[in-house]
Amino acid sequence: MVQLAIPKWKRMPLPEDIFASGESDASCVADIPQRIVVQRRFPQRLRMEKSLGNSFNIFVSQASKNNMTMTVKRSFEVQQAYYHYTVHKPCFAENIHIEAEAGSKAFIVIEYDQDDSVFTNHHQWIQINGRKGCDLHLMVIQKLSPKSRYFSQQVAYVEEGGNVKITTLSLGAALTALSVEEHLLGRRANGDMKLGYLLVGDQRSDYCNSMFHKAPQTTSNILAKGVLRDQCKKVYRGNLFFDPGSPQSVGREEEFATLLNPGVVANSLPALICREDDVIGEHAASASQLDQEQLFYIMSRGHSKKRAEQLIILSSFSEMMEDLSEDKRQSINDWISRRLQVERQISDF
């Protein structure tokens, strides 16, 4: 494999061994409806965006052991397709291509889990082609061990009238670099991005959500919500681009960061890049401690302060998980609770 240069990021230094090669594998449990066609290959002609950088692109394309193309057939509707990967080797690189054909509708969940003692460099490239009138929701749940690293590039191209929603729950890993892009190529295409993150201990994360409005009457929403505790560091970039030729488009971006103690570092870089006058672009960001009024209200209902804090934190993620089943939501809540090392039993709320 070609020796790749380690990118020099100003706000989030990267370790020297991020492109180290080694044993690469993960076991997978999947629940895939027949209406999704899965092939163990990846398209030859792949559109590569800048995302995390060329080094990551090259590494994933060379090192990938999990090449997969999922095709949601034209006009078919899929309630839920579910992949659960347990990652147990030092390397795991994968290429995933999702083709949502015209008029199709699907909800695809990909979850990554591993034992807390395992270390993995996880590199991921996901590309989505959302064809005319499709309605696709991809949800990626990352629960890697506190030792691992997660580098993910997710890019979606949305054609006329298509709707692609990408939700990422970034809950584990010592270091996360995540870039999610949506390119709204066709008239009235809609892009939706949600990011929920939990950072505790000395976790570091660099998140980037970018929405490119490239056609008229396109709409988009970006929502990022997260909780930071201990000595963790977060960099969040939310970018809204309105390219020439995107009149009457509307894009919105919001970020809410909850800071739980001194010592956390939270950087936000929301950007609006506008080359078209007839658009509406808005972004908003806020950062604060837990809402004292909410705490007071929950405690007035008989809960301890610890429990009240826990409930508020969990509620930050509920909006991200609304399409998941009740069981799945509960298991994620339990996982978050364990991560927070607070009381586990929360169902009496």
Binding site: L259, P262, S268, G281, A284, A285, Q289
Partner: peptide, 17 residues
């Protein structure tokens, strides 16, 4: 750009175009 090195803050940002 917002850089926070402290949790006891109340920060709000809005932008429109």
């Amino acid at each position: 750009i917002i850089e926070l090195f402290n949790d006891q803050v109340d920060i709000g940002h809005e932008a429109k175009i």
